[in-house]
């Protein structure tokens, strides 16, 4: 169990670094395109597409880490009044459901990537293959689901510790 958590942490760290790189690259591409277009009149036609793809990577790679930090907003107006034990069970149910749900999402994004790959569709302007970016998003969801699974397993762990 402990090493599962370590692997998870390691993967989330790597994705965080890559995501940060992507957000800075996104900023640079959009900024450079302004500079190229305005003073130099040589806009890079593909900028719009690349910015969109980078944006996808930024968000997808942040998924696991954001979950790790428990940043996603939970409405606990009612549940905060429940006993701690009940809430832990509810958390368990919540992690269990979302682990499965986002595993399905990851799978379906992957399926979508496969479809794009097989159909031979390319991006509008650069005419480049973009299914690898879709696979990146799918991978982000995989790690996200994995993180939720680790959170789910942790609930049992802390219970064992208490008793």
């Amino acid at each position: 169990m402990n090493y599962l958590e370590k692997i998870n942490l390691f993967l989330n760290r790597i994705l965080l670094v890559l995501g940060s790189a992507a957000v800075l690259l996104l900023m640079s591409v959009a900024t450079v395109n302004v500079v190229l277009r305005y003073p130099f009149k040589v806009p890079w036609r593909g900028a719009y597409e690349v910015v969109g793809f980078l944006g996808a990577i930024v968000i997808a790679f942040a998924l696991g880490f954001t979950q790790k930090r428990k940043d996603h907003i939970v409405v606990d107006i009612l549940t905060e009044k429940f006993p701690k034990k009940v809430n832990r069970i509810l958390d368990g149910i919540s992690y269990f459901i979302t682990t499965i749900f986002f595993a399905i999402v990851s799978w379906q994004v992957f399926v979508w990537g496969l479809k794009i790959m097989k159909s031979g569709e390319v991006s509008e302007t650069l005419k480049m293959v973009f299914h690898p970016v879709i696979f990146c998003v799918s991978f982000g969801f995989t790690i996200f689901s994995f993180t939720l699974l680790v959170d789910f397993l942790n609930i049992f762990k802390s219970k064992e510790k208490q008793t």
Binding site: L78, T98, F102
Partner: peptide, 13 residues
């Protein structure tokens, strides 16, 4: 309100 699933996830689910 009852399951402690984050807002965005709940709506998607």
């Amino acid at each position: 309100f009852l399951l402690r699933i984050p807002v965005g996830f709940t709506m998607a689910l």
